[in-house]
Amino acid sequence: MSTPESAAPGKASGPEAPSEGSKEISLDEFEPYGTLAVTGSYFVLLLVLYALLYFVEFATHAPHIID
């Protein structure tokens, strides 16, 4: 299926035209390290907080349900 846009890449005119100095890259050349860093730090934060739950739930000298 080809649309008019995909049939003529780079030839679009008007506001969507690539500006001077920009280039098209493939998906694999796109490297969003910033996004990776943010996602990664949320992941690490989640693991750290989940580990802390152990101390909140079980390592305190407080009564808990045994049966």
Partner: peptide
Amino acid sequence: GSGLNATIIPGQIATFSTRFPE
């Protein structure tokens, strides 16, 4: 500050066992 927590519903008997360590 403890793990003791139950919902008490009319018509049912909520039950659990525990030990108070101190």
